[in-house]
Write a protein that binds this DNA or RNA. Structure first.
Length: 851
RNA sequence: GCGGACGUGGCGAAACCGGUAGACGCAGCGGACUUAAAAUCCGCUUCCCGUUUGGGAGUGCGGGUUCGAGUCCCGCCGUCCGCACCA
């Protein structure tokens, strides 16, 4: 009998057999209960990394387990194939983004195949192919027809040297990543989706997602950011007279601004307002700037900082006093009007009433510009001066006229009521959630199916002319959008009037592609995006698995997109993901050479306690354990590991030790341990001689407790606990003497490990002479009578400290337990004849004696 | 800045509803087998004191509730993640 498991042979053999038998093809017409298991599809960067392996292994274990428990399982795979890296590669390596992407997909598919995942490859899709994005264009037009798509001006990061739009990640310290030029904010006319129409529904829907992690729901709730407050007007006291002439746009609505409209979630603090601040992009700021060079320069400066919220909120608070005053609606006091860099144009009205005593940003600003900081809320009703920290807690209103003495909530209501009665404001709900800007000024994305005509305006491409296919003949020699400068592509006739017109050259955000791929997996007809009836059979997805980094955007956009399709009458589903799991990253130690360069794990050798450079013997500095990344070189290639240990050992390691939601540190000794265990299993299976004599009740108990426990752990995705239980069972089997029970345990063990190490399990079954495939086998049945032990160990405590343990029959009455515990030698010695004051007995658990 | 999560041996961790802290794995130490090595098997392994029986301390820090706290409450400290054009 061979002692060593040969994974390379076994992996290939069983992968071929599963393929031939189409074992994992999902049947749309099955009568079994359905289970849709999905992992977030990968971006085809070129190579899969260990993080993918972990993600897909988890999904695979669940998919295989569900098959064993009688489900018809849909477990598909595809490629999130549009996006910037392909264009960067095109610029750097002079390859076409399509060529680069498709060859990456081929490589990664081969890598995934080697891991033996139970995937239905017949449903594979890539978002960069016209048969996918063409259907996406059709859906986009449906949304347009239903009023969910519109255009508006919005700011982008503009690199004035490269003449191109930059993503936030391409802006480093306010400068373009390639050119190093200071980035400007520039306004462009862009496409938006009305996600805000669904803000309430997206928020409400969260409460029904009981199989989502609470933290993700909370993150989405905060992101949607419902806040109720008062929108109201400050009259402008002294608008500059020359304003009318200076008005640059000629828009008559802007000719005579008389008020500044603000929104506040704290109308109760209105008597503490000491100034009003508006965003640099606020129309009034722009009007004033036209006539004030210093203000204009200040607004320019604001525009040059990044568009990211983190940049805006961490930079030093700065403002410009416009010299204009506004009038407090209650007191009539004149408050200075500032333009400030911390006011966001996109939130509320782009203008705020600033109450320094009760808002930290306002306080920082007020200290810097020596403005008053009157307190209006006090926890104890006393008027203590404000220090360096704004008071945002509950309390009683003071210094506040008619609301004095009220608590915060009552005061809010009172101010709103008065504003509404007097007609200068109204209670309003404001959302932090903004409409989804989907325009990207890039080539490698889904073309937005619209045509611009001088006469007819923006005209949708007729559906029978879809897909609008990306031109292949493009160059990336110069920056900017190749669609923009393509000689012919954008020149088309208007579908309405037939005159010469221009195609839209913006493409869709790749988050659109990933907002419905799970729908297309469930059914993919040629002539429409999906088949309603078939797709609805599979949706919602029972278990969706992916990284926490998608907690907000991808998951929220997909929830919105599904609602949008529902709104258009295309699908009867609103929530696409019934169950969600967010897994942790794979991390690795980092190494640095004496000259401070990062070293890859294979360049480093362990000598005793220390690490040295393998070639030179120089000492290596051991860095922190961090997320695997190319820049720190702390990566391992799944292919190399599979070559060395086979798919099963890698899969086993991915599931072992760390809880799946936490980070998993990759270690060479860890994968070695997994490899040793697969061999231990193999020895158990290959040495198994069938024994029909003798029962081993202890082993049977352990076996059935393990069957039950592993099933529950897999359902809960607690793979590390399932692994530990399998180790315990394996240890118990190895220690057990030959018996019919032991033979049964070995055979059953092959089924228990099958979802995790499927190749080994198939090989074991074949070796043991069992008919059929493990892939088609059922999960072993549990005998409930064997789940309970008949003896229990009772902890005997004196004053809460463990002094002894006694092993007794299960279910012993309290007084018996008390007697036995008092008689336990170490207990008797500790209490030393003293009379117990009190004895606490928890049946089958412990006895605690208080003296 | 705002929001969120996490903190238990040398390391990854487990611990049900508040009831024997450290299961299981890694690393380490000792031993068996071997000419030797690899592989494998057996034993030990939270820390401190003690020859053993045993005793003391211990779940980031400081308090509290309780017969009993890793778990509940209050206050700190530290680390990591997200923040709308990366996917």
């Amino acid at each position: 009998m061979q002692r060593r498991f040969n994974p390379l042979e076994a992996d290939a053999k069983w992968q071929r057999i599963w393929d031939e038998k189409q074992s994992f093809r999902a049947d749309d017409n099955s009568v079994k209960p359905r289970s849709y298991v999905l992992e977030m599809f990968p971006y085809p960067s070129g190579r899969i990394h260990i993080g993918h392996v972990r993600n897909y292994t988890m999904g695979d274990v669940l998919a295989r387990f569900r098959r064993m428990t009688g489900h018809e399982v849909l477990h598909p795979m595809g490629w999130d194939a549009f996006g910037m890296p392909a264009e960067n590669a095109a610029m750097e390596k002079k390859v076409h983004p399509g060529t680069w992407t498709r060859s990456n997909i081929a490589n990664m598919k081969a890598q995934l195949k080697r891991l033996g995942f139970a995937l239905d490859w017949s449903r594979e899709l890539a978002t960069c192919e016209p048969d996918y994005y063409g259907q996406e264009q059709a859906l986009f037009l449906d949304l347009y027809e239903n009023g969910l798509v519109y255009r508006k001006e919005s700011a982008v990061n503009w690199d004035p040297v490269d003449m191109t739009v930059l993503a936030n990640e391409q802006v480093i310290d306010g400068k373009g990543w390639r050119s190093g030029a200071p980035v400007e904010k520039r306004k462009l006319n862009q496409w938006f989706l009305k996600i805000t129409d669904f803000a309430d529904d997206l928020l409400e829907g969260l409460s029904g997602l009981d199989q989502w992690p609470d933290k993700v729901k909370l993150m989405q709730e905060n992101w949607i950011g419902k806040s109720v407050g008062l929108q109201f007007r400050f009259e402008i006291d002294n608008p500059p007279i020359e304003l009318e002439d200076a008005n640059p746009s000629g828009d008559t609505n802007l000719m005579k601004p008389r008020v500044i409209e603000v929104f506040s979630t704290r109308p109760d603090t209105i008597f503490g307002a000491s100034f009003v601040a508006i965003a640099a992009d606020h129309e009034f700021a722009q009007l004033l700037a036209a006539d004030d060079d210093a203000l204009d320069a200040f607004c320019q400066e604001c525009r040059q900082s990044g568009t990211a919220a983190a940049d805006i909120e961490t930079q030093e608070k700065k403002g410009y006093d416009t010299g204009v005053s506004v009038i407090h609606p209650f007191t009539g006091a004149k408050l200075p009007l500032f333009v400030a860099n911390f006011v966001l144009m996109d939130y509320g009205t782009g203008a705020v009433m600033a109450v320094p005593a009760h808002d930290q940003r306002d306080l920082d600003f007020a200290r810097k510009y020596m403005l008053a900081t009157p307190r209006v809320v006090s926890p104890d009703g006393e008027d203590a001066p404000i220090g360096d920290e704004a008071y945002t807690g509950p309390g009683t209103l003071i210094n506040s006229d008619f609301i004095n003495g009220m608590d915060v909530e009552a005061a809010k209501a009172a101010v709103i009521a008065r504003a509404e009665a007097e007609g200068w404001g109204q209670g309003t709900t404001v959302w932090r959630l903004r409409d989804w800007g989907v325009s990207r000024q890039r080539y490698w994305g889904t073309p937005i199916p619209f045509i611009h005509c001088d006469d007819c305006g923006v005209v949708p491409v007729p559906k029978d002319q879809l897909p609008v296919v990306l031109p292949e003949d493009v160059s990336f020699d110069i920056p900017g959008n190749p669609l923009e400068r393509h000689p012919t592509w954008k020149h088309v006739d208007c579908p309405k009037c037939g005159k010469a017109a221009r195609r839209e050259t913006d493409t869709l955000d790749t988050f659109v592609d990933s907002s419905w791929y799970f729908i297309r997996f469930a059914s993919q007809p040629d002539d429409k995006p999906f088949d309603k009836e078939t797709t609805e059979k599979w949706l919602p997805i029972g278990q969706y698995i992916g990284g926490i980094e998608h907690a907000i955007l991808h998951l929220l956009y997909a929830r919105f997109w599904t609602r949008a399709l529902n709104h258009c009458g295309l699908i009867d589903v609103k929530e696409p993901f019934a169950g969600l799991f967010t897994q942790g990253m794979v991390t690795h130690e980092t190494y640095k050479s004496p000259d401070g360069k990062w070293l890859a794990p294979e360049e480093v050798e362990k000598q005793g306690e220390n690490y040295v450079v393998a070639d030179t013997g120089e000492p290596v500095t051991l860095g922190r354990v961090e997320k695997m990344s190319k820049s720190k070189k702390n990566v391992v290639d799944p292919d190399d590991i599979i070559d060395q240990y086979g798919a099963d050992a890698v899969r086993w390691f991915m599931l072992s030790d760390s809880p799946p939601e936490r980070d998993l540190p990759w270690t060479a000794s860890g994968i070695e341990g997994s490899w040793r265990f697969t061999n231990r299993l193999w020895r158990l299976f290959s040495d198994a001689s069938e024994n029909s004599e003798g029962e081993d009740k202890t082993l049977l108990r352990k076996l059935h407790q393990t069957i039950d426990g592993v099933a529950k752990d897999i359902e809960a995705l607690s793979f590390n606990k399932a692994v530990a239980k399998i180790y315990e069972l394996t240890n118990a089997i190895e220690k057990a003497k030959p018996s019919a029970s032991r033979s049964e345990a070995v055979r059953t063990l092959a089924l228990l490990v099958a979802p995790m190490v499927p190749h080994l399990a198939e090989e074991a079954w074949e070796t043991m002479g069992t008919e059929g495939l493990v892939a088609d086998a059922a999960w072993p049945a549990v005998d409930p009578a064997l789940l309970v032990d008949d003896e229990v160990t009772i902890a005997c405590q004196v004053m809460g400290k463990l002094r002894d343990t006694i092993t007794v029959a299960k279910g012993l009455p309290k007084d018996e337990l008390e007697k036995l515990a008092l008689a336990a030698p170490n207990v008797a010695r500790t209490i030393d004849g003293a009379t117990p004051k009190k004895v606490i007995v928890v049946p089958d658990r412990l006895v605690n004696i208080v003296i």
